[in-house]
């Protein structure tokens, strides 16, 4: 099938690009330079490619780019920068929740999605929310702590 021009709004930028229908959103995002979206399995088994699509956390490897036409996409890099990080990014950095860092962007997206819906999650809710994001380095303890601590900070009036 011929490529068609689709529109993606990514981290506040708009891209109009001609794409074949068989390309996944993951491939397209990475080709556009959003390499903070990581590829770990291309099957939805690991969560490294998680993004927010119209506010919903999804594996970008399981979405065709055409399906995201006109969609609002936020990646981990769209949540904050080194100078102005999101509270989750600060908490992950300070809690020792980051080792190799490859799962981190996807993990932070799942955490963001959780806190959007449940600003005061229990530990069980946090563990469930990140259960599709595999981490091979940390054993998860410090990640769970980081999300708890970010939730507390955000509840105390920090930015969300």
């Amino acid at each position: 099938m011929k490529p068609q021009v689709i529109t993606l709004h990514i981290n506040g930028r708009t891209h109009n690009i001609a794409l074949s229908p068989n390309l996944t959103l993951l491939t397209v995002l990475r080709d556009l330079g959003y390499t903070d979206v990581k590829c770990g399995c291309e099957k939805g088994d690991c969560g490294a490619c998680a993004i927010l699509l119209n506010g919903v956390a999804v594996n970008s490897c399981l979405v065709l780019a055409w399906q995201a036409d006109e969609g609002e996409i936020i990646t981990a890099a769209g949540l904050g920068t080194i100078e102005n990080p999101h509270p989750l990014q600060t908490a992950f950095s300070d809690a020792g929740a980051i080792q190799c860092g490859y799962c981190t962007p996807g993990m932070i997206i799942s955490a963001k999605s959780l806190l959007d819906q449940k600003p005061h999650p229990t530990e069980a809710e946090i563990r469930d929310a990140i259960s599709g994001n595999l981490c091979r380095c940390t054993g998860y303890a410090q990640i769970v702590q980081a999300i708890q601590s970010a939730a507390e900070k955000m509840a105390d009036g920090g930015e969300g």
Partner: peptide, 12 residues
């Protein structure tokens, strides 16, 4: 539903 795959997959 709660035990279905994982939240990222459940969302789709």
């Amino acid at each position: 539903a709660r035990l279905f795959a994982n939240p990222l997959v459940r969302n789709r």
